Amino acid sequence: MRRLWQRGKFHLSALMLLVPLPFLPNYFSPKPIFAPPEIRRDLTAGAFPLRLVTYDEAPHWGGNGERMKEYRIHLRPADIDRVRGVFLRVGKPRNLRAAGALGFGNPYEREAEVAVPAEPAGTEELWVTVEDWNGQVHQASTPLAGFLGGK
């Protein structure tokens, strides 16, 4: 009986190594397995065409008590070296100090988490501020109403 258990342990451990193999392609794919549909907007801020992408889900409550929404910012590969920073904000920024949430992460796909109003009126705009390495500031806006997601 003891010898049977020793042999069974060996085969059981080999089986446990083989069970996750069918799930590996999904694990290494860049897109989440159960991702909600995306909402995309193409904008041009000065000389920089960019694409804003967000998931079609409702904003979540952040740790600071505000509703937060995550946006991804895609720049053209030719513009990546020219852009110093990309900022997102609901409402027109007064100056560069109040430009909003800075896009961070991978230069090809930056992410920014923006504070959105708890009860939007439908007239708000999402402003994108792009600063290049020469210090020039370029801005563009898009209506927030159809770009908030998850009503």
Rank of each mutant, 00 (worst) to 15 (best):
R3A: 15
V83F: 02
H60R: 15
L50T: 05
T44R: 15
R97Q: 11
V130W: 12
P36Q: 06
Q139A: 10
A98D: 13
H11R: 11
R67A: 11
V83P: 00
V90F: 05
P36M: 07
G85D: 11
E57V: 10
T142C: 09
N26D: 14
R84V: 01
R89P: 00
M16N: 03
G8H: 08
K69Y: 04
Y71R: 06
P107S: 03
V114K: 02
R89W: 06
G62S: 10
E124L: 01
V128R: 01
V83S: 06
E113Q: 08
P49Y: 08
G150F: 00
I33L: 12
P37T: 10
L4M: 08
M68S: 03
E66S: 10
M1A: 08
R41W: 07
I39G: 05
L24G: 07
W133D: 01
G150Q: 00
E70Q: 11
A99C: 03
G46I: 10
D79Q: 06
R7W: 14
V86T: 12
P120M: 01
I73M: 07
D132R: 10
P20C: 10
V137I: 15
K92V: 03
A101D: 02
W61Y: 07
V137S: 02
V114M: 08
Y108E: 15
H60C: 03
L148N: 09
G85I: 07
T142P: 09
G62M: 03
P107W: 00
L4W: 10
A14T: 11
P93D: 09
E57L: 09
F48N: 05
Y71S: 05
N26W: 13
A58D: 05
W127K: 02
N26G: 13
G122M: 00
Q136E: 14
M1K: 04
D81R: 13
L50M: 07
A140K: 06
F87S: 00
Y71V: 06
N106C: 02
E131Y: 10
N26R: 12
A78V: 15
A58F: 03
T44C: 09
V90S: 02
K31C: 07
K9L: 14
E111N: 01
L12V: 11
W5D: 09
G91H: 06
P36R: 04
A35M: 08
R3Y: 01
A101P: 01
R7Y: 12
H138D: 09
V83D: 05
G149V: 00
R7S: 11
D81N: 10
E66Y: 10
I33V: 14
L50G: 07
S13Y: 12
P120A: 00
P49K: 08
T123K: 13
R7M: 14
L88I: 03
D42R: 11
L24I: 14
R67K: 14
E70G: 02
I33K: 10
S13M: 14
F87I: 00
N106K: 02
P37Y: 00
R51M: 13
